[in-house]
Structures are given as structure tokens and as C-alpha cells.
Design a protein around this nucleic acid. Sequence first.
RNA 1: GGCCACGUGGCGGAGUGGUGACGCAGCGGUCUGCAAAACCGCGUACCCCGGUUCAAUUCCGGGCGUGGCCUCCA
Length: 443
Amino acid sequence: MVLRLYNTLTRAKEEFVPLDTSRVRMYVCGPTVYDFAHIGNARPVIVFDVLFRLLRHLYGEAHVEYVRNVTDIDDKINARAQERRGSRAILDAVRELTAETGRIYHEDVAALGCLPPTHEPRATEFVPGMIALIERLVAGGHAYESEGHVLFDVSSNPDYGKLAHRTLDEMIAGARVEIAPYKRGPMDFVLWKPSDETLPGWPSPWGRGRPGWHTECSAMSEALLGETFDIHGGGIDLVFPHHENEIAQSESAHAGRALARVWLHNGFLNAEGEKMSKSLGNFVTIRELLADWPGDVLRLNMLRTHYRQPIDWTVRGMNESWTILERWYEGAEPVASRRMGEPFLDALLDDLNTPQAIAELHRAEPEELAGGLVLLGFSPDPGRIAARPPIPVEEIAHDIEARNSVRKARNFQEADRIREDLATKGILLEDNPDGTTSWEVKR
RNA sequence: GGCCACGUGGCGGAGUGGUGACGCAGCGGUCUGCAAAACCGCGUACCCCGGUUCAAUUCCGGGCGUGGCCUCCA
């Protein structure tokens, strides 16, 4: 049983060997809490939840540590809080916004069947560690102060670009943005920036200010997982600059010792063939989807595509996922079973090939089906994906009764009329072999 | 402009140097008053052009197309 993972750092599938099998460590970049999470944000959460579950299966539940941070220091948060602060202090508005958004996020992600991570650090709890990290970088000649900012000197890190697989020259050649006057090098990035009285800020050797985004993850991962850990994950758009910069600052602060050994990145998600964006109006939140679809359906729909491939998120696809899940949940043995098929597990071990694993589930015996579903984070219980209860159940029962009595009288014309009538309301009748009639919602 | 992915049947989606994964839809059958569900059966797909090879969808080169990153972004 060998787990192989595609490492962005080497661009190859590698055998996964933890530094310490009694403490397997994974860090995944979590949400910036200023707005509802959209379905694209759900992809890494679900993908890395599956990996978390697989690692727990392989190494034992007590031996896997999963950290997913919450970014609650950010200029988008400040801007949003400013809009809705009213007469309150900005800090109160920020606190309220991040607390509320964080709560919604947790509800959404739980509905998608994701386990809580082992640790969920918030940036505001780790500011002293960030300052200490920056001080180390300044002392080591990797960072400099300029106009109240502290910047990372990219030229001090010969490895810079190793994750993105791009040289400094290539990046500078492709730069499309004006270079801030306080930067020495065009690719230098901010570790610390000044805050005026209207913004959240913390005292520091460089005055009252706040950390840059990349700094948060470096400080929190070090505090909770140590200098070097096993897996660092996130969306593919984070490869550059976020993860590249995390590597640069962490490894510069740690005498070149690796930040993470394996870097994993999930692909992007499009909606109905188009990039999801607010301007196109196809920006769909997890919350909105959960109003119309069971969380398990969204989860399966996500897992039917390999995590590194792009997904085209469509209503058609979700309907298909729902159909599959209904059949599975009816056929799966009660959840007590934890047995799973070898081909199923082999598929997951091969760089988390969930589409292949799902194909194996279609071939599996009921007990193995249940075991596989549980490992993937599903709850094989028909009630969990039962039709929502919008339906006038009593009225339907009454109609069915009426229909069955005319059927007994062999008045099939009237029986079919009742069936048609219900069908126009989206209710599909099924006459079972034992003489009973059941119904379901037609989609 | 620079860097990087991807292009498989009606649709979704794995995979492989040589017998058409798997699912959804569709069609045929069993069953049924008729349906539905369930079960059984049915499909000669790999963007184009070259090259390597006994053999390429799979490897190499070129082309076309789609998408991503280079700026906040999962």
C-alpha cells in the first residue's frame, strides 16, 4: 500500500513518505473570511478532506495533523468592514464580520461532509509569531525596511521561483504591474505594512501595522507543525505568488530547510463552461447550492473529476450525481461496515484518483460500496438525500388511494388521469410488485 | 509578451504502445393493465499533420483550439 502524490515542486508523482509516521502533517490554505464561500472555494476543502481521511486510514486517526488556517487579517476584510461599520469602531466591525463569515463557512463545509481540521488557527492569534519571523528575516539580510513597510528581498533567495518553475528574469519580463516606489527589486513582496488609526494594527519594531498575506501562513505553519512538514496544499492559483513567497520567507528564516516536502494543488472550477466571476453573474455560493441540493450531491459532483483537472460545474452534472447517489444509498449496506475493495483503495492511493475509485464503487459489493463511501466522506443513508419536503404529502397519499381504488375497479382511464395530474406537479408514481404505490420527485 | 496545463463516444470522465474502464442519457428485452423502478443486453471514442515503431489514442515534433498563472483570487 503505497500512496503516490503529484508534487508541484518536482512536477512528478512521487511515493509519499512521511517524516514521522506517528505524526503526519498537512497544511492547507483556508478562507479569507469576508464573504460567503463560493463553490470554487469548496474544491480544495473537499479534495483535501478526502486526503485527510485517506491519511487517517493509512496512519491512524491519532497520527495525522491537519491545519487549515483562517485569514482574518486582510485588506478585503477591512474594506468590507468599513462599508458596514456604521458608527462602530472599525475593529468591532472587523471582528463581527470575520466571526460571522467564519461561522457560515463552518456550516457550509460541514454540510459538504468535511471533517474539522485538527487545528484552525486565525491570523489574529499569531501576530507575535509573524513579527518574530520578520525580525529573523531582517537580521538575516533577507528583508529590509522601507517607508514603514518591511519587504522580502527576493534576490537574497537563489531558489526563488522553484515552485512556480520560473526564473526571476522570466517573472520580471512578464510583470504587468507598476512597481511600488519603496521596493528595491520589482518582485520583492510585503511582509509588513503600516496601518493608520482607521485600520486594524499591531505594535511592531517598524511601527503600528499589519502583516502581509504570505506571512500569516509561514508563521502559523511553523507554530503548529514545525519548520518542515509533509504536505502543503491549496488551489493552483496559489502556486504563484502565495506559495512561492511562503517558501522563500520560511526557508530563508530556517537556513534553507524545506518548508513542505510535497506541494499539492487542485485545479480550477468553471460554471456552465464559463469562468466564475461576479461580472458574469455566475458566481454561485455554497450556501445557495445547499438550498437546492444535498451536500453529499455537491461532494460527489466534485469528486467525479480528478482533483488536478479543471471541472465544469453544471446543473446537468449535479443531477447525474444525485441519481448515482440515490442508487448507491439504496444499495449500500448499513454504515457499520468499514471494509473496502482493494481496487478502490488502489485508485485513491494513485494520486487521489477519485474518478477511478468511483468507477470501482460501481462494481463493488454492497458492503464494500458502503466502506468506500464512508472513506470518501459520504453517509450512505437514503434519508440524507431524500427529496426535500416541499411536497403536499397528504394530498399525494390521498390521490394515490383514489387511484388505487379505481385501478381495482379496472377504471384505468381515471387511474392514468390521476397519474398524469401528479406528473404535471412533478410527482412520479411507481407501482411496486407487492401492490403498493410509492412516489418520488421528478427532476 | 513570458511561463504552464489540457483537447477521449450524445454528455461526464479514467486509462493505456497491441482484446472499446466506469457512469449518465439512449435503444432492445424481462416484468407491468399502462408506466416507473429493478434486472439483463446493446456502443467499434481518443483535435489535425508529420515522425519513431511490427503496432500510437497512448512516445517525439509541428499546427490548431480551450483554459490557467504572471495582479487580490481555491
